[in-house]
């Protein structure tokens, strides 16, 4: 008779360490893991400690007001928060459709060799240092995009949000949005590529056999099936955009006035604002900048959390 399962001695394989090499490696891994954990913990403590006084003195107006005056000790970041979200959403509007299209092309249309090359090229885009994109953006792209902005303003300037009273088109949220789109595209593409690739190929065949075109197949079958994962990928891109510093600093004219006109020549964004003001701030000012960092961190954390929930739920659905 076979032994019943209960009578086996269960050994916890995870913790079973044997041999000197194993012990060393185990020790090193544990230290590294605990170190990373403590580091995050310490950073959170530091941020909380450094920003606490700002939250205390500025109160809720820190989030809702529009004045930043280091000399007077007034620190309010509302235009920057609005700007961060506005520029990132603009970036998403541009990069999300492009990324989904690239992902679909790579997974379903490109011959294998081209698909591989494209995957690498898009990933390479993610490897470009921000400062390179920043300089290219400021000196090469911005003048061109400013012309696009002018054309849009000429034709559609009557629409609220596309107005421009200054007559200058550089330094706008529109241009910052484009730059962010370039930085978001690789991450959104790579998530969408994996998600779209995991859609059952049989469903795609079925759709094509029912007289579907490439486009209707994507719209009616692939995207609805992969919706949760694609949403997660887009939110990860949003997180990337919210945190981008140097590239936005180079192309956006930071002004503490709330601006929803995307073609106007100024805007806001939290991360570049911190970078711009850090060097010339008083000690209290630096604490306020760190508080702004905390606010941005919370927003990004929230966006990433939602993204992970979406991606996780999608993967679970696919596994079942």
């Amino acid at each position: 008779m076979a032994k019943s399962q209960e009578s086996f001695d269960l050994v916890d394989l995870k913790l079973k360490v044997s041999g000197r090499g194993d012990r060393l490696f185990f020790g090193f891994s544990s230290v590294a893991a605990y170190f990373a954990f403590s580091l995050v913990f310490l950073i959170v403590i530091f941020l909380g400690n450094a920003s606490f006084s700002t939250f205390k003195t500025q109160g809720l107006a820190f989030f809702t007001g529009s004045t930043w005056d280091d000399a007077a000790g007034v620190y309010q970041i509302f235009p920057m928060l609005v700007g961060s979200v506005l520029c990132s959403i603009l970036g998403l509007l541009i990069s999300a459709p492009i990324s989904i299209a690239i992902a679909y092309f790579i997974e379903f249309m490109a011959p294998p060799r081209l698909a591989k090359a494209l995957t690498n090229i898009v990933d390479l885009l993610a490897a470009l240092p921000s400062i390179v994109i920043a300089i290219w953006g400021a000196f090469v792209f911005a003048p061109v995009a400013a012309q696009w902005a002018q054309i849009i303003n000429n034709k559609l300037g009557f629409i609220p949000g596309l107005q421009n009273t200054s007559g200058t088109f550089v330094g706008s949220p529109f241009i910052a949005g484009w730059i962010l789109a370039i930085m978001m595209t690789p991450i959104i593409t790579s998530v969408c590529r994996e998600i779209i690739g995991s859609v059952d190929k049989d469903l795609v065949s079925a759709a094509l056999a029912l007289g579907g075109t490439r486009f209707s197949t994507m719209r009616r079958v692939v995207i609805p099936t992969a919706r949760g994962g694609i949403t997660g990928g887009i939110l990860l891109g949003l997180g990337r955009g919210l945190g981008e510093t140097i590239a936005v600093l180079y192309v956006l004219n930071l002004v503490f006035i709330v601006n929803f006109n995307i073609l106007e020549n100024y805007g806001g964004s939290v991360a570049p604002m911190i970078a711009a003001y850090y060097g010339e701030s008083s000690e209290v000012g630096v604490s306020a900048l760190l508080a702004a960092g905390v606010a941005l961190f919370l927003i990004t954390l929230f966006v990433n959390l939602i993204a992970q929930i979406f991606v996780g739920r999608y993967e679970k659905k696919m596994a079942s």
Binding site: D200, D202, L203, S205, A206, A207, L210, G211, G212, T213, S216, T217, R220, V221, P224, T225, R227
Partner: peptide, 20 residues
Amino acid sequence: NPFPTMTIRGNVLSGLRLSG
């Protein structure tokens, strides 16, 4: 391989939707 995001009715009509 019915389309999992569609209803039974939606699946029957999917050919119309896909081919316009």
